[in-house]
Amino acid sequence: MTNDLTSLARDGVLRVAINTGNRALVQQDGAQLRGISPALAQRLADEIGARLEHVVYEGAGKVFADAERDVWDVGFLAIDSTRAEKIAFTRPYIVIEATYAVRAKAAFQQIGDVDRTGVQVLTAKGSAYDMYLTDTLQRATLERFGTPPDSFAAFRDGLCDAVAGVRQSLEGFFEGDTNVRLLPGALTSVRQAMVLPRRDDPRLAALDAFVERAIDSGFVKANS
């Protein structure tokens, strides 16, 4: 099945979309990218004998927006039924949690406390938790703003009453900020998968088998 994936590379180069806005999957240190997504990208490039080229984004919404623009060959996104109308998902390779960051003195104690009349919730535009909140919030008002780091900064600067995000990303951004705290528990669990930019791509089965091998061999666990 590995041979079926060699056609993903163009002139020996595999372009892989990497979302640096999700610290659970990617950690950036200057030009260096670490974490499970870059590790899987390199493993795939090595298997098919291609040179890896990172196509770096600061938010999942931008990765998805570029799916039809021939900018990347393989990517990493949260599984979502709306996105699945356009792109192809493998099985999930990891499941991560999203939660809220709130003001330290706010009355919110649990996830459910946030969905109240008059509360404004901030989310990164096009993120998996944006889509989840769009479907599930009943009383609070949802505001969308840029990439995850953009939305975190806007919340820090006073916008809205809570901001949604991947727990690790929120922890990294607000580390040492005594004015902000994270709520316990999970707002939603996000299933992360490898993706191809066309829904009907015939190479999906081979890419799914690649993910399966990476999980079964312990590679995903060792690099998460």
Rank of each mutant, 00 (worst) to 15 (best):
I87S: 03
D46T: 10
G146K: 02
G118F: 05
G118W: 04
H54G: 08
I79L: 15
L137M: 14
E68L: 08
G30K: 10
A153H: 12
A140C: 12
T134I: 11
G30N: 11
G146F: 03
R34H: 12
I94L: 13
Y100V: 00
Q120E: 13
I48A: 03
G118N: 10
G49S: 06
A140H: 09
S151M: 03
V102P: 07
T141S: 15
V163N: 01
G75S: 12
F155R: 03
G146V: 02
V55Y: 07
I36L: 07
D135M: 12
F145P: 07
V56Y: 04
I111F: 01
A45L: 12
T99Y: 01
A41W: 03
S81M: 09
G30I: 11
D70M: 09
D66V: 05
D113I: 10
R51G: 13
L133C: 06
S127I: 05
G126E: 05
A78P: 08
L159C: 01
P38E: 08
V121K: 03
R103F: 11
A128K: 03
L142Q: 13
F152S: 01
R34D: 15
F152T: 02
L122Y: 03
D70F: 10
K105D: 15
E53T: 10
K105G: 13
L40K: 06
V95Y: 04
